[in-house]
Structures are given as C-alpha cells and as structure tokens.
Design a protein around this nucleic acid. Structure first.
Length: 873
DNA sequence: AATAGAACTATTTTT
DNA sequence: TAGTTCTATT
C-alpha cells in the first residue's frame, strides 16, 4: 500500500469535534501563552526556542494534532524529525492519544530513518539496489583499513580512524572526493593520498551496494538535487515539516530540510502524478513551499564534533524569511535550585543569547556535592546515595548516573553490582557491537546483500573453518574478475585452481547455505541475488510461496549450520558462555521483530538494527538505574541525577580544551546534564583518577566554581580531600566545614590516595578568551603530564620487576562464586569489609543476594555470584 | 592455519 | 590498564 494515496485534505474523516464547540479545548488547555502561540502559529516558518524542560514535546505534539484536527493537513502530509527512534515512538503515541488513531501514515522518525526510507524507494535511480547495506562505523573502518593497506597509506600516518573521521566531516559538509580534490593543495602528497583513499572508499561502497551513516543524509540530498522530479514528489507530499533538536543539525541535514521546503516550480508541477489540482497551486503556478517548524535550544548544542552547526538555528530567521519566533522559558521539570545552577553555568558562555529558565515550583533541596579520594570512592558514594533514595521510596528507574566518557562506567558498575543495585548501561559497547553478535549479523547482512565484501569477509572466519586470508583473497579476486556475487563465487570454487581440494568442499557448502538462505529471505521467488539454480534435493523444504522467510528462521538456519553456538559452548572460557547467550538473545530479538512486524523481511530488520540509538534501549518499565553519557542523556529526564567525574580534563575533557569553542561546548554539555534533573541533583568528583594503569591527581572542574556556593551542600568538598590543606581555591575553600559526618570516615581512607603534596586547587585558565592564550599553557601541561606519565610507568615497571606489586591496583578480575551456598547464620569474610554474618539470602540463581551484617561496617547487600567473599568455617 | 604470548598504543562525545 | 596487532611456535 502506498503512502501517497492520501493527498487531498478534503473530507477528513476524523477530528471533527472542534474545540470551538464550547468548553476548554483539550489541545490548548493548560498551555502557557507562549506555548499556545507555538501551537497556533501559522506561517511559512516557525522557530520555537525551547529551553530545557519547557514542554517542547508537548507543544510539538499539540501543534501536529491541532493541524490535523483543524483539517489543515492529512497525517500523511506531516514529516516530524526527532533525535532518536524512541523519541519518535513517544511522539507518535502521544499524538495517537490526542487524536485517536490520528498518527497513521505520518512520518515520525529520525533523519537517518527517513532518509533510508526514501533511499530504499529511489535507490535504483542512481545505481544502487533497494536492499543496500548500511555500514556502521566499524564496517566503514574495516573497509578503510583495506584501502589504506592497499595504498600503503599507513606510512603517511593514515589510519582507518583518522581518515574515517575526515571523510565523515567532509560528507557532513556534502563534499565528495572530487570536491576535495578541487580545493586541496596539489603539492601536498598527503592530500593527494587522502583523495585517493576517499575515492576508493566511495567506489568500494558503491560496489558493495552500501551506504555509510553520512551517506544516508548526503545521498538523499544529492538525489533531490539531481532529480527534481523525485524531490517534487516529497515536496508535494510533506506540507508540514517539523524538526526537533534543530541546534544539532549539521549542514547535510540542513540542506535536506532546505530541499524539502522548496516550492515546486511549474515545469515540475506538470510532471506530478497524480496531476496537481488547482487548489494545490499558488498564483504563479507553483506548489508553495511546505511550512517548517523547528525546535531547538542553542544552549543544548553538543554535537559540533559531529558537524552540528549552531548557525543553523542562530540564522534561522535569515534563512527562512517571514519566520516567527516563539521563546519558551518557563521550565516545568526542575526545581529552582537546579535551574539556578544551570543558568549560572551556561551564563559563562559569552557567545549566546541571554535566556533564563525559571519555574513556579519552588527551590527544592540543594544540590548535593561529594568529592571522593578515587573514582572508586566516588562510585561508592553514588551507590550509597542510590540505596538511600531507593529506601526513601524512589524507583530505580527514576535515577540516572551521567558521565563524560564511557570508560567511567567501570568503577560505577563494580560498586553497583556489589550493592546489588539493578542498573543498565545505555550506549557504550552496545549489544550489536559485540564480536559474536556481529559475526551472526554478518551472515544476515551477506544474505541480504551478497555483494558486500565486509560482511562476507567476516562470516568466512566465524567460526573458524580453515578459510584463511589466502583463500579469501583468491575468492575475492575471482568474484571481481567474473563480476559475480560473493555467494556465486563460492559456488564456483572449483574454478579457482589455487584453492585446494579440502577447502573446496567447505567453501561450496557455505556458498550453498548462503544461497539457500537468500532464496528464503526473498520468499523463494526469483531474486537478483542467486540466479544459479541449485540441483539440491534439500531445497524442497523451502515453501514455494512468495512470502519472505521470518528473520528468526534465517538466523536459526545460519546458527545451526555454522554451529556457532555449539562451538562457543564447547570452549572452557566462561566468557564464551556469555557469548553463546548473546546469540540466543539475538535470536529472541529476531523472533520479537517477526511478531511485531510480520512479513517485513530481512532488510527491514537489518535497517532497524543499524539505526538503533543508545537512548532507544531505555526502558521505563525496567526498574533499573540508568547509566549513560551526558550526550546520550539529551532529551531525557529523571527525578534524581548524578553527574560524576566533574573534574578538569574530564569535564571539560582534555581533548576539547585545545579546540576552538571546545570548552563552551563542554559547558553546554554540563548544562544539559544539570537540566535533566527534576528533583535531586548530585555532583560528584574524585581527587585522583586512574587513567590507564596509573593514578593521576584530578582537579575540580571550572564548571563547579561557576555554580554559586549557596546552591551546593557539600557532603565532602574538594577542599577537604586535599590531604593536608595545600593551596585551596577561594571559592571551594569557602564551603569548607559544611562537610558534616562524611568527612571523618572518608578521611580515614586518605592513605589510599596518591601522595598528597600536590595541591588540589581548581583549574586555572578562565572560561577561555583568546584561543591562542589558552592553548599554549594547555599544551605545556600536556607535555609535563606526559613526562610524569612516562616516569611513573618506568617506576611501575621497575617495581614489578622487583617482585613487588603495585600498591594501588584495584582487583579487576571478575569473580564467579556461582556455586557458593550461603544460609542465614553463616559467617563469611569479605575482601574489603572483613568478617560478617549472613542474615538471609534472597533471589535465585545468579541473582542471589546475601544480606550480611559486617562486624565493622554494618549491613550490606551483596550479589553472591560476584562479591569478593568466602565462607568462614 | 591456529594459537599463545609479546609488544605496542591509545586515552571523547555518536546517528 | 586494556584492547589490538605482531611474532613465534606448533
């Protein structure tokens, strides 16, 4: 069924009960004047400047619902772009709630999903096939690795990572290899080599029938520009375009919006199918431009590193003449204390428009601050406070822990596990990035796209079956020379003399498996994939209908035939059991997909998997604490929020300090973090932090000082953790003494820190004036830090060589006391807490939790499987 | 070809 | 430290 059948808004079948009929209008009721204006405004363009927590999702959904109810648009004429798939699903649900089944046929999706949808429909226009593969960053890197190797470009310092990010940046600017070649310095061999890499990369993607992430947007723009008739179809269809998080759009995304909001010129109008009706046209015979609504907050722009251009929002009024601007400043999310802190921090960004969030809700409790001696100590505080909050009646799912970098999860996870607090890490090493999951997925990808070398190459070695690099190269040469798909090349392995007789059987069997699966995936009918009929009696099991096989069946077939799970289970490494479980989990995901979207097919499944965002896994029903980076946290809110690692070098991150505008972006990140909190905000840091094997002194973040003292209640201030009071900052010194009961206990652990002769004063260098003035001392610091690091490493090596362990190492090994039986009354000993008595055991299996009263530290809950405990006889 | 151990190196955020 | 890649061995 076509999405295009509902083009004429006359005779709209629903939404007839207009708000004017008396009584409050449910779509306007409870909105403040600014929000109401944003819902009702009609014009070519509308910019909604929406401060954090100002109800923009509400405004957007109500605006869409209002358009439909007032018969100004069909659902199918609306395109709403959100930042994550989860936000899209939520928006759809809320509009459905407002209108009944009103969201049917509406496009609510991310930029990437919308573009994939368009590209799949139009791929043939420029030499792709609809079943194209979407390369994730790892796939892109794998491809680049080959190219760099082939060109010997590594000797010039090219790596898959650096060339990949450079290509990505260029693509976000809509530049291709030829554009770059036209502007580069001809005399620079590195530049010329880069162009060569870029060219080959483009070429290989095309040969593989694959797009990378950036292509999804860029190629859609390219498609629209090269084919005005195609563009006209979408320009005509989408009469109302709404874009959320507009401050984080990059040039390519901006261009896409521009293309979609162009009027259709008369010469294109002629070609429209079905023909344009008179009422669709303006006086000059054009189809007028779609109306555009964008929502954004330049203070929350945190993706400049990905090409987001803040100018898109700043210059919106110039770009779209006649635009109306509505500012939403009243906050409905957080307490005044939290907002004051947020305002104070962001106020230090001088290059912004003045804006102040306010709330009518009252001050609320103060922000809680804590400084640990190490990240371990910091994590302990977080875990204890979470337990406290939970005891106080807060659900785990109302609590989130934020950090700047994914590597900070380690210490947090360790302590949360020990405290038996259920938690979930969003993002980080995602499920689909696990090696074994990628292995299994590579079969499915290859089945859907037998021309893709990356997935094919991966599946050859998963599991190990004796096909090595040599055999792979011969096969690849053969397929290229003969112009075959990889599957066909494998079936004809007998024609490759270099491959020995033993391997031929293996290769042919694998080729047959893939061919058979591809037929099933295509519904058993003819495909562009495997024209070679296989005289194989086992074929009979495939049904002859055109129905594509369920994804789970395909996956099951692949897993069974390759014996991946069995081979993992057969190994002794306990990690391999977890890997086998991941594959079972993947099978469950596929089954779920088949139930949710019956008949959708393999390509739809692969698309969905490629485009999941970190925040999409957030499950409000899960009853777990959420751990995530502050980037992932954008758009979310929690009753209680912990912002951890608020130290110079981490937040703002060291890497950002040298970049122009880098610190300002980090400050916005801090602002985003703070404004996620509704009721309680905790800000924590550590005075020492272990960076790869080494412990370094950390200084409080400059952002801390930007928060007025009166707003933070320090349980343990940075000043108190100095050791023997070295030079302390004025600002932080001032709150000294409000430490309370924590200081005593914590000070006892001081010996664990590094030698405390180093003063723990907050970072120098203000918010950043001239970048030249800032970068010089910064690089100086980096140099000395590097020297220090080398020296420490040398000492550590010597110490290890001398047989003495390193005193500060935290035991990182994963324990498994799986078989430990405990009962009330048993006495146990714990590595850190000493001896204690078990008062009870709850939970089952690997989730068994022991309740223990320790002689020294009192009651603790421990996960039996993982806690560092042993029974005392 | 597969494995185990040694050496090396990178330390940001992500659709 | 930890993850990866290189090298030597079987």
């Amino acid at each position: 069924m076509s999405d295009f059948e509902l083009l004429d808004p006359s005779g709209l079948p629903y939404g007839t009960e207009s708000g004017a009929a008396g009584g409050p209008d449910p779509l306007l009721d409870g909105l403040n004047p600014a929000q109401e204006r944003a819902v009702l405004s009609r014009g070519p363009a509308l910019l909604i400047v929406a401060g954090a927590g100002s109800g923009k999702t509400r405004v957007l959904t109500h605006r869409i619902a209002h358009l439909i109810r007032e018969r100004e648009a069909w659902p199918s004429q609306i395109l709403a772009i959100t930042f994550t798939n989860k936000a899209a699903a939520e928006m759809r649900e809320r509009i459905d709630g407002l209108l009944g089944e009103g969201a049917q046929g509406m496009w609510i999706s991310t930029f990437h999903s919308a573009c994939v949808r368009i590209l799949r429909r139009e791929a043939e226009r420029f030499g792709y096939v609809s079943g194209f593969t979407i390369y994730d960053s790892a796939d892109s890197r794998a491809l680049l690795k080959r190219i760099i190797k082939e060109l010997d470009a590594d000797t010039y310092g090219f790596t898959p990572a650096n060339s990949g990010s450079k290509i990505s940046k260029l693509k976000n600017e809509l530049s291709d290899a030829s554009d770059y070649a036209a502007t580069m310095n001809e005399n620079d061999p590195r530049d010329r080599l880069f162009v060569e890499i870029f060219r080959m990369y483009e070429q290989e993607l095309r040969r593989a029938n694959a797009f990378d992430f950036d292509d999804l947007i860029g190629q859609t723009v390219h498609l629209f520009r090269a084919h005005p008739d195609v563009a006209a179809v979408y320009q005509r269809r989408f009469r109302h375009i709404l874009v959320d998080e507009y401050q984080d759009t990059n040039h390519a995304q901006y261009s896409l919006i521009r293309e979609l909001t162009r009027p259709i010129e008369p010469e294109q109008v002629e070609g429209l199918v079905p023909p344009a009706r008179a009422r669709e046209l303006d006086a000059s015979g054009r189809v007028p431009a779609a109306s555009l609504t964008v929502v954004g907050d330049s203070d929350q722009s945190i993706y400049a590193f990905r090409g987001a251009d803040i100018r898109n929002i700043v210059e919106f009024e110039r770009d779209f003449p006649g635009a109306e601007v509505v500012k939403l400043e009243q906050n409905y999310r957080s307490t005044q204390n939290i907002l004051s802190a947020a305002n104070a921090v962001i106020g230090n960004n001088f290059d912004r428009q003045e804006k102040n969030l306010w709330t009518a809700e009252g001050d609320g409790p103060k922000i809680t601050g804590f400084t640990g001696y190490s990240q371990h100590d910091e994590a302990r505080f977080v875990a204890e406070e979470i337990e406290d909050l939970h005891r106080g009646g807060l659900a785990y799912s109302d609590i989130a822990v934020f950090y700047r970098t994914n590597s900070q999860t380690r210490a947090l996870e360790e302590l949360l596990i020990r405290s038996a607090i259920p938690y979930r890490v969003l993002g980080g090493t995602k499920f689909y990035e696990r090696a074994e999951v990628k292995d299994a997925m590579s079969y499915l990808t290859s089945i859907a796209n037998p021309y893709d070398p990356i997935s094919w190459s991966r599946l050859l070695g998963a599991p190990k079956r004796g096909i090595g690099p040599m055999a792979e190269a011969h096969l690849a040469n053969f397929q290229e020379a003969q112009g075959l798909s990889f599957h066909e090349a494998m079936l004809r392995v007998d024609e490759i003399p270099q491959i020995g007789p033993k391997l031929r059987g293996t290769v042919r069997a694998l080729g047959e498996l893939l061919t058979r699966a591809a037929k099933m995936a295509a519904g058993g009918g003819p495909t562009d994939v495997a024209p070679e009929p296989i005289p194989d009696s086992e074929q009979a099991e495939g049904d002859q209908e055109k129905r594509p096989a369920p994804v789970a069946d395909l996956l099951k077939l692949v897993l069974d035939e390759s014996e991946m799970i069995e081979k993992l289970r057969a190994r002794r490494d306990p990690q391999d059991d977890a890997r086998a479980e991941n594959l079972e989990e993947l099978l469950a995901v596929a089954r779920e997909f088949d139930v949710k979207q019956p008949g959708a097919g393999l390509v739809a499944f692969l698309t969905e998997v490629s485009l999941v965002a970190a925040a999409d896994d957030l499950d409000d029903q899960s009853g777990t604490v959420s751990l995530m980076t502050m980037h992932t946290a954008k758009g979310l809110e929690f009753k209680a929020v912990f912002i951890t690692g608020v130290e110079e070098g981490l937040l703002p991150h060291q890497m950002s300090v040298d970049e122009v505008g880098g610190v300002n972006e980090e400050r916005r990140l801090m602002y985003v973090g703070i404004t996620r909190a509704r009721e309680r905000l905790f800000i924590t840091l550590a005075s020492t932090r272990a960076t790869f094997g080494d412990v370094a002194v950390a200084m409080p973040s400059r952002f801390l000082q930007e928060i007025p003292e009166g707003l933070i209640d320090w349980r343990q201030s940075p000043g108190e953790v100095t050791g023997r009071g070295g030079t302390e900052s004025r600002a932080l010194n001032a709150v000294r003494g409000s430490g309370g009961s924590y200081s005593g206990r914590a000070r006892g652990g001081a010996s664990r820190g590094t030698d405390s002769s180093v003063s723990f004063a907050p970072g120098g260098g203000g918010g950043g004036r001239g970048s030249a003035a800032v970068s010089e001392p910064a690089s100086g610091n980096m140099q000395s830090a590097l020297d220090k690091w080398r020296e420490r490493k040398r000492l550590a090596k010597e110490a290890q060589a001398a047989g003495g362990g390193f005193p500060n190492t935290i035991g990182g090994a994963i324990r498994d006391n799986g078989d430990l039986e405990l009962a009330a009354g048993d006495r146990i000993t714990h590595d850190e807490y000493g001896e204690g008595r078990v008062t009870g055991v709850t939970g089952v299996g690997s989730k068994r939790i022991a309740h223990v009263v320790f002689d020294s530290v009192g009651e603790r809950k421990l996960l039996v499987k993982l806690a560092p405990i042993a029974k005392v006889d």
